[in-house]
Design a protein around this nucleic acid. Structure first.
Length: 584
RNA sequence: GCGCCUGUAGCUCAACCGGAUAGAGCAACGGCCUUCUAAGCCGUAGGUUGCAGGUUCAAGUCCUGCCAGGCGUACCA
């Protein structure tokens, strides 16, 4: 709709240009935005304010001329000039009603598929397989997954890349320990030890620190692993398989759409690393410094104000994560043919990505037209404002976090609705518990740090998962109560009241909101939108009788609004990776 | 030292790449269950957007300088 109004304004500008006077060189970039205040209509443009002076008009005068030159449009009921020269557009109610009616009867809820689908490579989750998934992996995993689902819904070709940490020196220690335990213990004992990767890692580290012979064996294994020794690779595969099982158990609980096919870890690029360095050398970007192969970029400085290198090969010949990321970038740009490559990685790696993106472009691994974006996010803090830790100061395992959320959700739902049987209660607690954790994270702007607070995220009031889930059950219960099939409604949508109009006008903005989420990687925009919808629906439901409406026409109209609301809420939550519940 | 990010109501968060009177939710206060719904709705109160300048018709948003906090800054990822 913004585009549509912008087009009208552009044509009006052309008319003014030919009919009145206008500086030859002056071109206008027409912007239309949603009006923030109902009194200002549905959309507003500041074009007259921006261009007035430069075109030689008083802003209000220009606005009047533009208004007079605007082509007719059935969607626009009224155009006002307001304030210093804003042009306010009021949508025609019957047009909103028709759009809403169409959306209500569309399985895509009125959201058109992208006219030009992009191939979007999304790097997210990417846990380190050496350790168990902890809260540090949560944000990348759920924000990335929400954006991925949104992009897919919009019709883009999405390639998920789970860039797991499956390589590096710590694997020597882990393999040495795995080897030792394999011979010392029965399979069952070993399996139970590996069931807690965190403990396994700690135990291996302990042995490494305490026993020189063990440490020597660990280093030996790193070397044979890197040289492709069969026995060593076998141990390595076994360890990774078990570690990945842990990851997927967490994904399953969290409702993450990643599959095994999306796993492409650091090790996948091992045999390309030498070539990356060679290519950098060939393009004359490479410099040898203190024994290491580096790329120096002027714009980055060290703490001593010297040029800061991107080290791609250490003095001992080893490669670093910059090298791996360059190889991954080349693969994504060339082999996967990405139009966009998005990284959902902690904000703290901002410098690293700036460097790697720059080097990749200089070296020609990535075209200038390919978008490379680090979608960084802030830290998850505890209620004290410090990074979220256990009472003893350790990292919190994701599985423990989910356990606690489900337990709390169970108690809450049980208290509110004691007649539910245990099986259903468990299922509800699972959706509410994990959904609350996800929603609490997704509803905040990803760039900022946020405070993790169980009580707040599990509240049934405010911008939370329980509130939205309950809002959906309320809408859904209308149909259940009346024994109606939502797919068998008929007739037009009529917007008789303010509550209906506001709800409908917001419902038909689902598409533009999703586009923003996909473009900017900001799922909180969708959360805010859904919260809006839920509030507008509550208000509508309070003021507009649905089942007991006056007459069949009004009843059908309101049922269709309810149906569209249910559809948008359910689809929106699904894009956030949260499923709805018929009862709770 | 340099660079990046953050600073908005008592608390938790918004503000659509410069717009109109800075918005929600909690907490506080006041109303509404003989009418599908109260896990809800309607309303009141709450602000010098860290501070000081600047650019602009217009600044929470852009620029400069301070203050406070977080993070990063050569062979970990």
């Amino acid at each position: 709709m913004k585009d549509r109004i912008a087009t009208l304004l552009t044509r009006a500008l052309e008319t003014v240009r030919t009919r009145d006077q206008w500086p030859d060189e002056l071109t206008a970039d027409v912007e239309v935005e949603n009006a923030r205040d109902k009194a200002h209509g549905d959309f507003a443009s500041n074009i007259a304010l921006k261009m007035g002076k430069r075109a030689g008009y008083q802003p209000r005068d220009l606005a009047e001329r533009l208004k007079a030159a605007l082509p007719e449009d059935e969607a626009i009921a009224q155009v006002d000039i307001a304030g210093p020269g804003f042009i306010n557009f009021f949508l025609a109610r019957d047009w909103i009603a028709r759009q809403a009616r169409q959306a209500a009867n569309d399985h895509r809820l009125g959201v058109p598929p992208a006219a030009q689908p992009d191939t979007v490579v999304v790097d997210y989750s990417s846990p380190n397989l050496a350790k168990e998934m902890h809260v540090g992996h949560l944000r990348s995993t759920i924000i990335g997954d929400a954006v991925v689902r949104t992009l897919e819904f919009l019709g883009h070709n999405v390639v998920r890349q789970n860039h797991v940490g499956d390589w590096g020196t710590q694997f020597g220690m882990l393999l040495a320990y795995l080897e030792e335990e394999k011979t010392a213990e029965s399979d069952e004992q070993l399996a139970s030890e590996l069931s807690d990767l965190e403990q396994f890692y700690q135990a291996a580290k302990q042995r490494f620190d305490d026993d020189d012979a063990f440490a020597a064996r660990a280093r030996e294994l790193v070397v044979s692993l890197q040289s492709g020794d069969d026995y060593c690779l076998q141990l390595w595969r076994e360890f990774n398989r078990i570690s990945l099982e842990h990851c997927f158990a967490v994904y399953e609980r969290l409702g993450i759409s990643l599959t095994r096919a999306d796993v492409r870890g650091e090790s996948a690029y091992n045999n390309e690393l030498a070539d990356i360095v060679e290519q950098l050398d060939r393009t004359e970007l490479l410099t040898r410094s203190e024994g290491a192969d580096c790329v120096f970029l002027d714009e980055f400085r060290t703490r001593d104000d010297e040029a800061l290198p991107v080290i791609v090969r250490k003095a001992d010949g080893g490669y670093l994560y910059a090298t791996t990321d360059l190889a991954a970038l080349r693969y994504r740009a060339r082999t996967l043919d990405a139009d966009r490559v998005l990284y959902f990685v902690d904000q703290r790696q901002g410098l690293h990505f700036q460097q790697v993106f720059r080097v990749a472009r200089l070296a020609g691994f990535v075209n200038d037209t390919t978008e490379l974006a680090h979608m960084g996010f802030g830290t998850m803090n505890g209620p004290d404002g410090r990074p979220f830790k256990t009472r003893s100061g350790g990292t919190v395992k994701l599985t423990d976090l989910l356990d606690e959320a489900e337990e709390r959700a169970w108690r809450l739902v049980q208290a509110k609705n004691p007649e539910l049987d245990e099986a259903e209660l468990r299922r509800i607690a699972q959706v509410v518990g994990t959904g609350s954790i996800k929603y609490a994270d997704l509803s905040k702007h990803r760039a900022s740090d946020y405070i993790f607070d169980f009580d707040q995220m599990l509240s049934f009031e405010g911008n939370t998962a329980p509130y939205l889930l309950y809002a959906w059950t309320r809408v859904f219960s209308i149909f259940r109560k009346a024994g109606l099939n939502p797919d068998e409604l008929d007739g037009d949508i009529r917007l008789d009241t303010e509550a209906e109009t506001e709800l409908a006008a917001r419902l038909i903005q689902f598409g533009p909101v999703l586009e923003q989420v996909g473009e900017r990687g900001l799922p909180h925009l969708l959360c805010n939108y859904l919260f809006d919808i839920a509030g507008l629906f509550s208000s509508f439901y309070e003021h507009c009788p649905v089942l007991s409406a006056e007459g069949e026409e009004q009843r059908q109209s309101r049922l269709q609004l309810a149906r569209l609301t249910a559809g948008v809420l359910q689809q929106g939550l699904a894009l956030l990776g949260i499923s709805t519940l018929e009862r709770m």
